[in-house]
Write a protein that binds this DNA or RNA. Structure first.
Length: 566
RNA sequence: GCGGCUGUAGCUCAGUUGGAUAGAGUGUUUGGCUACGAACCAAAAGGUCGCGGGUUCGAAUCCCUCCAGCCGUACCA
């Protein structure tokens, strides 16, 4: 739970305010009427030191002085004794730039040395019980490339939340009831009858599922049970076919997601909400709450009462509940029945409108839910492209590239790295480039750094140099720029995790990994280890080993392997 | 029409919530292994941050008008 950046930042603020108080006591600076809110930031450019305080800039107005003059008075009164810092100077319009010293390098390596696989973890979540619901693909067909993205995003976000002190629950919501399932049954039925009586024996349902997977299911059923269902009435037959096909598809999804290194704590079946009467109960509660009305025999939720653009149908005039009512029941189940403190739904952009309206519905006081505790991560669609042309993807027409096909062509590591992108980006996936994407994927750059360190450590061990403990590793010997840069990058890791958790943006970890690998490769090329004087050798070996630890930690968060050889 | 997301180097994308000369990767050009893994490193070139206004010490970032692309706007899910 050590965060070296946080402690360094806090020190800057303390040093500055101590200096200001001293200046004020000595009459060099006037007393500010309100506390000066001087921010501390990590600098972008190392030429500007490591941390910059904007105290003089923000305080200039209140003190009625020029920023640079304020900075001058502060700077001359800074006392670095016992701090991580070695010096400070004034730059630009009045920034006070602080530069870290060797005591800080040592503390960073010490933190990694003592925390090992736990380095980077924080308790910011304070054990909050969070559900991340993701993928939740319709079980009426194989998962698509969009699900590949959602799977990585949800799983990685969940990992990031775990590392930041949340109690995380991964859930897959299975739509095993409703219209889509009926249509699924009718589609299999048609293929089954065609199998028995020829292509023209029956008309394929309009809007039916045309994919080859439906034919395969019909064939499987035929191979197992022959013409057993031929003489049943249609409803009964569809029911029987679905009873085989649905569990089969769900098992396939589980298998394929496992191959993708994704596991769920629960596969929540929509049908259980119907069977237990939970939907009826929930709708009854909504009715009692007074924000519903009947129109043309259907029941509506007056969603406009909660700021939404339109009302929503809860129960159709035929008596069936809409997906909307089911969704409300499901979320009431998450919050009320199961007591999650926070729920995050990872949805595709095609559900964005629904997410906004749905969130409004959560404000209905009858539900007893704090709508602010429901968050959405909306990810933009993945455009599937071949030779520069967009391919329309649809489960209905069966033209999708499946997640499983994808993994046949590209390694899981490359795939997970590629899809761990910022949710907002409109990703383009080029089928023609898929194989090339493999060798270009920066994941190999990161993994290479890890493999390099592994063989380095192994080779040095053969020469009798084990990775030293902190007592035998003198961090002050790591004073050259490439080595210092590695230390600084290592120190950032806990902060990267925190920001990723706060912003629901696990793709930060990807970028961090590339930066850490780059810092290491640069160091490795600039500084030799083998053959150096023993103290220098040990210090650099220790640094390399710390890089290995942090690479492993961060790679495991995004579900990518850290190979010893490549 | 209304709502959401996006627009930054030839291409793919960052930009730490308003900070210093806008950065990486890739591609192009050039250099570096009789040396711990060259799947690496170094250097060059490449920009009206979609357009135009506004807010202030200071804007890619905040506000407004337009332009373009994608996604929504069902008694489907």
């Amino acid at each position: 739970m050590i965060n070296m950046m946080e402690s360094a930042k806090a020190q800057v603020a303390e040093l500055v305010s101590a200096a200001y108080e001293k200046a004020e006591a000595e009459g060099a600076l006037p007393r500010a009427e309100a506390p000066i809110n001087g921010g501390v930031e990590a600098t972008k450019d190392p030429r500007n030191g490591d941390y910059a305080s904007s105290f003089a800039l923000t305080g200039a107005k209140a003190l009625k002085m020029k920023p640079r003059d304020v900075a001058l008075e502060i700077c001359s009164r800074l006392d670095f004794a016992g701090s991580y810092f070695a010096s400070a100077d004034i730059a630009g319009p009045g920034f006070i730039n602080f530069t870290l010293g060797p005591s800080w390098y040592s503390a960073v390596l010490g933190a990694i040395d003592s925390e090992r696989a736990d380095y980077g973890e924080t308790d910011m979540g304070k054990g909050e019980k969070v559900m991340v619901e993701f993928v939740s693909a319709n079980p009426t067909g194989p998962m698509t490339i969009g699900n590949a993205r959602g799977g990585v995003l949800g799983d990685t976000l969940a990992s990031v939340l775990e590392k930041t002190g949340h109690s995380v629950w991964r859930e897959f919501y299975v739509n095993d009831a409703g219209n889509q399932v009926d249509l699924f049954g009718k589609s299999i039925e048609a293929r089954y009858i065609q199998l028995l009586h020829g292509e023209d024996a029956v008309e394929f349902p309009e809007n039916g599922y045309h994919g080859d997977d439906i034919k395969a299911l019909a064939q499987m059923i035929y191979d197992k049970d022959g013409d057993k269902y031929d003489n049943m009435d249609s409803d009964e037959r569809c029911k029987a076919l679905v009873e085989f096909a649905l569990p089969y598809n769900i098992a396939q999804m589980k298998k394929h997601l496992e191959r993708y290194r994704i596991r769920f704590d629960k596969w929540f079946l929509e049908s259980t909400l119907h069977e237990s009467g939970y939907i009826e109960e929930t709708v009854a509660i909504l009715e009692k709450g007074g924000h519903t009305y009947e129109k043309d025999g259907a029941l509506w939720l007056r969603n406009t009462d909660f700021g939404a653009e339109k009302d929503e149908c809860l129960r159709r005039s035929n008596g069936f509940y809409t997906y909307y009512a089911v969704d409300i029941a499901y979320h009431r189940n998450k919050f009320v029945a199961r007591g999650f403190d926070r729920v995050i739904d990872v949805w595709g952009a095609d559900h964005h409108g629904h997410a906004i309206r749905f969130k409004a519905s959560m404000k209905d006081p009858a539900l007893g839910i704090d709508a602010d505790k429901l968050d959405f991560v909306i990810m933009q669609m993945v455009r599937l492209v071949r030779d520069g042309e967009t391919i329309k993807v649809s489960k209905r027409t069966g033209k999708a590239l499946t997640l499983n096909d994808l993994l046949d062509e590209i390694s899981v590591d490359a795939c997970r790295f590629f899809f761990n992108a910022k949710p907002d980006t409109h990703l383009e996936f080029d089928l023609g480039l898929a194989v090339r994407e493999d060798s270009e994927n920066p994941v190999y750059y990161v993994q290479y750094a890890h493999a390099r360190i592994c063989s380095l450590v192994k080779m040095l061990a053969e020469e009798g140099f084990e990775v030293p403990g902190m007592a035998s590793a003198d961090a002050s010997l790591l004073s050259d720029e490439p080595a210092v840069n590695v230390v600084k990058t290592l120190a950032r890791y806990p902060d990267e995790l925190r920001t990723a958790a706060r912003d629901y943006d696990p793709s930060r970890i990807n970028r961090y990994l590339v930066e850490l690998a780059a810092a290491f490769h640069k160091f490795y090329n600039a500084d030799r280890i083998k053959g150096e004087e023993v103290p220098v050798l040990l210090a650099r070996l220790k640094l390399a080993d710390c890089v290995r630890t942090v690479l492993e930690n961060a790679l495991s968060v995004i579900g990518v392997s850290a190979p010893e050889h490549m």
